[in-house]
Amino acid sequence: MLQLMKYEFRKQMFSKIIILAILGLMEVVFLGAVLLKKEEVMAISVLGLYVLACMAAFYVSIEAIITFSNDLKTKQSYMLFLTPKSAYQIMGAKVLGAIIQVFLTAALFLALGFADVFFLAARYSKVSEIIDAAKEILSGLSGLDITLPMILMTLFLIFICWISTIIFAMLSITLSTTVLENRKSKWIISFLSFILINVVVYKTMSLVGDQVTAGFYISSLVSAGISAVFIALASIGTSWMLEKKVSL
């Protein structure tokens, strides 16, 4: 499976290099601006970094889905399905590959974001005052005392949700390919089944969520758990269809 994962990364490497290159460039501009105290350039580069972070997050997920689609719907599919590997291994490599890529992307941008804020705070003493003020406003609004574990838990939930979106898209694509070999309406069916799966998951979550009246951590863990179960089910279901039903 390691071999399969290696090629999952290899196939999607080019865009990652581009993102890294742009990120590096913007970071240099930002740090330079902070050092030279050029406020205007600083503002633009912060905005740029923020936009890049959003786009990268979006693109990493989209690319995982596009790659999956190409690996199923184009001649490129022979590359994977001629190898003596089971569909479970192939899907496993894809799921793990997506998780690692999303994790690394998120980790990189978060780490850089924190580092940049601290750097800024060190250079401008006013900034740290602003951060403190922001914290107070936030905890005032939510009525909660925002702590680091809480932020981490929220990030974890976003991460799980992100992964599940990718996996559900893979399931939808496989479903439409299996049910409708060679039909033109494949894309619409893919999309509709994607929506349907998400609705089902959301309904289940709110149903279970209503039963749980525990605190923030417990309910977060419960919804993360439900998502994880659905991710596992979707992965296994997709693999099963790939193994038994799909004709390339």
Binding site: Y7, R10, K11, M13, F14, K75, Q76, S77, Y78, M79, L82
Partner: peptide, 11 residues
């Protein structure tokens, strides 16, 4: 198996 069409990855 060798297919009629090329099927290698673009990269």
């Amino acid at each position: 198996y060798m297919s009629t069409e090329p099927f290698y990855y673009n990269y």
